[in-house]
C-alpha cells in the first residue's frame, strides 16, 4: 500500500528525471543534478509510530484467541519455542516469537497475525500472552521502587537521547533496521535521538542479539563505560529472550541475563517504527497505554 503511494507520488518525478539522464549532455546532467539537490522535498514521514502502517502482508503482532488447541504438537512446532501448551491453555511468549507465521498456518483458530508491529514493553512479563489475556503477573514490586529514579532519568533524557548500539550476536537483521532509523524516511534525529561513537557520550545502550558468550564481557564493559543515567533497550526476539538461538552453550539467552533491561522491543527483526517506539517509551515520550490498533 505504501509502496503504491510512493510510486504514485514519484511517477511524475521519475519520468521527468529520466529525460534529464538520457539527454547525454554531461553539463546538462550536472545542472539537473544540482537543481535536484536544491529541490529538497522532504521524504520524512510525519508520525512513524502511529501514522504509518505496514503492508497488509507484514507479519507483526500476534493475537491469541481462546480456543482449545486441537493439535498436540503445537508447542513442538515453534522453532523459537515461544509456544507452550498444556492441551487446554496456550502460552505465547512474544519475546521469543520470530514472526514466521507457522503457528497461524497450523492453528488459525488460535493465532492471528496482524500487520502492525508488536508493541515494545517495559516489563518482560508483558510480552507473555496467555490465551488472549495479558499475564496478570505483570506488575513487579521492584518496578515501584525504581519508579522515582526512572522518572528522573526520563526527565533528563527526554529531549536528547544519545545511543550506543551493541550487537551482542545478532544476525545483522536488527542492525539493518536500526540503520534504517537514520534514513530520510524515518529520520530519528528529529526526535533528538542520535547515535554516538563512544559509550561515554551515550544515554541508551541499544542491544541486539542473544548475548553470545563471546560478546558477554564486551557488553558488560560497554555498559560500565556509560555514565548514569543510562537505559538499556533490548531490540529483537534474540535480545529479549535468545529468540531462535535460545539459551545454549554459545549464548546466554537474552540481554537481561547480562544487564538490567529497561525496554524490550519484540520482533524478528523489529521494524524501525517499533524500535523508535521503544526508544520514545524509554523516556516516557509515549505513554505505554497508547498501543496503536
Amino acid at each position: 500500500m505504501i509502496c503504491e503511494e510512493i510510486i504514485m507520488s514519484h511517477k511524475k518525478d521519475a519520468s521527468g528525471l529520466r529525460n534529464s539522464v538520457d539527454s547525454g549532455d554531461s553539463k546538462h546532467v550536472q545542472t539537473k543534478i544540482m537543481s535536484d539537490i536544491m529541490r529538497d522535498d522532504v521524504e520524512t514521514i510525519k508520525d512513524p509510530v502511529n501514522g504509518y502502517t505496514n503492508s497488509q502482508e507484514f507479519r507483526g503482532s500476534i493475537t491469541l484467541f481462546d480456543a482449545i488447541p486441537h493439535q498436540d504438537s503445537l508447542d513442538k512446532l515453534c522453532a523459537a519455542k515461544a509456544i507452550e501448551t498444556d492441551g487446554r491453555n496456550v502460552r505465547l511468549d512474544l519475546g521469543k516469537c520470530i514472526m514466521c507465521g507457522r503457528c497461524q498456518q497450523a492453528a488459525p483458530d488460535i493465532f492471528l497475525i496482524g500487520s502492525i508491529f508488536e508493541t515494545p514493553v517495559k516489563v518482560r512479563q508483558d510480552l507473555i500472552r496467555l490465551s488472549g489475556k495479558l499475564d496478570s503477573q505483570g506488575q513487579k514490586p521492584y518496578e515501584q521502587m525504581g519508579k522515582e529514579l526512572k522518572e528522573k532519568t526520563s526527565k533528563i533524557l527526554r529531549r536528547s537521547l544519545a545511543i550506543r548500539e551493541v550487537d551482542a550476536g545478532s544476525c545483522n537483521g536488527c542492525e539493518v533496521e536500526i540503520t534504517a532509523l537514520n534514513n530520510a524516511i524515518y529520520d530519528i534525529e528529529r526526535f533528538g535521538v542520535h547515535f554516538v561513537a563512544s559509550p561515554r557520550h551515550a544515554d541508551v545502550l541499544l542491544v541486539t542479539g542473544p548475548a553470545s558468550r563471546n560478546m558477554e564481557i564486551a557488553l558488560r564493559r560497554t555498559f560500565e563505560a556509560m555514565p548514569d543515567p543510562r537505559i538499556v533497550v533490548a531490540v529483537g526476539a534474540c535480545a529479549c529472550s535468545g529468540g531462535i538461538f535460545g539459551d545454549t552453550y554459545a549464548t546466554t539467552g537474552g540481554i537481561d541475563k547480562v544487564l538490567p533491561v529497561d525496554i524490550y522491543v519484540p520482533g524478528c527483526p523489529p521494524t524501525p517504527q517499533a524500535i523508535l517506539y521503544g526508544l520514545l517509551l524509554a523516556v516516557d515520550r509515549i505513554e505505554a497505554s497508547k498501543i496503536n490498533g
Partner: peptide, 11 residues
C-alpha cells in the same frame, strides 16, 4: 572474529 558465534550448526 567469532564474537557473534551462537552455535548455529549445533543448534
Amino acid at each position: 572474529l567469532f564474537y557473534t558465534h551462537k552455535g548455529v550448526e549445533k543448534l
